[in-house]
Design a protein around this nucleic acid. Structure first.
Length: 542
DNA sequence: CCGTATTGTCATAAT
DNA sequence: AGATTATGACAATAC
């Protein structure tokens, strides 16, 4: 009986060896290289390698053809709904299994594995033949709790296993780490639903698990795979690498360096996986390094929560089916009417905590600019909310969510079955979107106010200059008048004579006009403000 | 590397 | 009362 304690993945032998826990006696190490796959088993010892360079080309060619088909089909589907708003458009009818299968960029055959193992002189799986219908394999999670499964390898080896499934088949993955959580919250398990290992009765098949699953599991499986398909492959890979890192005692940085571009801003899995200990705006005093090494429970539980929300969002609550749009009804009705899916949609996190689950995981030493490089070309141009909405399969565009009239918005929320998580995200998106617009308006207004004030300042300064010029002109006019008055005064005095015929000194006398129009010559010392007009001493002669 | 501008977001008050 | 808008403050990012 083989003791497979874990699966390590890397780009080459060295990487795999580094990923392999030193205390694992038997570690199945699978390398997904573009040109060939390396498989070795033992105590960090390379027992063999399979060169898939030729087969890989075939696989690539086949996958490429399938991708083209899939792309063509997808384009056709998109064209069909292109004219409709997202909340009215039909959901894609593309078979999810098919989509899933098309994503097999890194595939290998279990048959190769067993051929390889069988060729080893000290075959760790000695006694196991390809024809064994039921292979008892003890799969250890690398820690303390071995779990025994009976896997039907005769079926399994007849199919290629893609990367996702290969990871799913490993019990040592991020989403299934906590056996307690596994039993206490089965509805929140995400990837587990894909894995036949969770149910010993299920056979191991890499291609069409749904055929073996009970109905509700099949439905979940479809959605899970659908989700998986749309999640960035980097997210997926990173989650598992981080899982390996945290559980295998590796340095997360080392693991992250293996995958040069982790999508830390994807808004779903990765973010949620880490930010319980490293949240951008967290009040927590955890250091960045602590954030880089989240506990496995956090890693798993948050992933469950996020992903469960996403899964749940694809299914209508039977109690709400009557409120749903008939188009969405057509998508769900027949199936779920018979088999209600019992999801637990209770969320214990506050909105802020939920929000934090999308937050960016802080990769030490990696700037946002670099981290954005981890997004694919499509996602790189998306805003954070758009990526979040995409990750949670929100059936509306961010633009629609934000700009939809409130009535349409509320009716939309009631018509579609959405999980609390999705509703929370949608409301957050709407709030943020509106606030973003409000902030832009606010800033524009503030700029307008500033510009208007600057204009006012300019206008007032111009007016001030004008007034200063007017004042200057008035002063000039006054001075001219004064001068004229002064000249007239002296002209008058030069012609005045007293009773004795002597000229009147203008320094000693002043002219004073009386009310009747006569002009008097008054000594200055007698001229007081009150007397100037009252008591003329002498009338001048005209 | 530092300073500044831009932008998104949150909290809170106002509407 | 709840939704929306306005705005100050802060952080991330670009330049």
């Amino acid at each position: 009986m083989a003791q497979i304690k874990g699966i390590a993945m890397g780009e080459d032998i060295d990487t795999c060896a580094r990923l392999t826990p030193a205390d694992s006696a038997n570690v199945l190490v699978i390398s997904f290289m573009p040109s060939y796959n390396l498989i070795f088993i033992g105590e960090n010892e390379v027992l063999g390698a399979v060169d898939h360079s030729s087969q890989h080309e075939e696989n690539e060619q086949r996958a490429s053809t399938q991708r083209e088909k899939s792309l063509q089909q997808k384009n056709e589907d998109e064209n069909k709904v292109a004219d409709k708003p997202a909340w009215e458009a039909e959901k894609t009818t593309e078979p999810r299994n098919e989509r899933h299968r098309n994503g097999t960029d890194t595939s290998f055959s279990l048959e190769d594995l067993f051929q390889l193992l069988s060729s080893q002189p000290e075959n760790p799986l000695e006694g196991i033949s390809l024809g064994d219908s039921s292979l008892p394999v003890s799969i250890n999670d690398g820690m303390n709790s071995p779990t025994h499964y009976n896997a039907n390898f005769s079926q399994a080896i007849s199919h290629d296993v893609n990367l996702h499934e290969a990871i799913l088949l490993c019990p040592d993955n991020t989403f299934r780490r906590d056996p307690v959580a596994r039993t206490s919250q089965p509805q929140e398990l995400f990837l587990q639903l894909n894995s036949p290992l969770t149910n010993p009765e299920h056979t191991l098949s890499g291609t069409n698990l749904t055929g073996f699953l009970p109905f509700d599991n099949q439905m979940r499986n479809l959605t899970n795979q659908d989700l998986l398909h749309d999640l960035d492959i980097n997210i997926f890979d990173e989650i598992n690498l981080m899982s390996l890192a945290t559980e295998g005692g590796f340095d997360p940085m080392e693991v992250s360096q293996l995958f040069e571009e982790p999508d830390s801003d994807s808004g779903l899995s990765l973010n949620s996986s880490h930010n319980s200990t490293s949240v951008t705006k967290s009040n927590s005093s955890h250091s960045v390094c602590e954030g880089a090494s989240p506990s496995s429970s956090d890693l798993g539980s948050l992933s469950h929560r996020d992903l469960e929300g996403a899964v749940g969002g694809s299914y209508p609550d039977p109690t709400k089916l009557s409120h749903m749009d008939h188009r969405s009804d057509s998508h769900f009705h027949g199936d779920l009417a018979f088999q209600p899916v019992l999801h637990n949609h209770t969320y214990h996190l506050k909105p802020s905590a939920l929000e934090s689950t999308y937050e960016t995981f802080s990769w030490p030493g990696k700037s946002q600019k670099i981290r954005r490089g981890y997004l694919n070309d499509t996602d790189r141009n998306l805003s954070r909310d758009e990526r979040r909405a995409k990750a949670l399969h929100i059936p509306f565009s961010v633009d629609e969510i934000v700009h939809m009239p409130v009535d349409s918005f509320n009716s939309m929320l009631s018509r579609y079955y959405l999980t609390d998580f999705q509703v929370s995200l949608i409301r957050d998106i709407r709030r943020r979107g509106k606030n973003k617009v409000a902030a832009q308006n606010c800033r524009r207004r503030k700029l307008d106010v500033i510009l208007n004030l600057e204009d006012d300042v300019c206008n007032l300064q111009a007016k001030k200059e004008t007034l200063k010029r007017e004042r200057s002109q008035c002063h000039k006019a006054i001075n001219i008048m004064k001068q004229k008055l002064h000249d007239l005064y002296h002209d008058v005095f030069s012609r005045l004579r007293d009773d004795e015929g002597r000229p009147v000194n203008p320094n000693q006398y002043a002219l004073q006009c009386s009310l009747d129009g006569s002009v008097l010559i008054v000594p200055k010392e007698l001229v007081t403000p009150g007397q100037k007009k009252g008591k003329p001493k002498r009338k001048t002669k005209k």
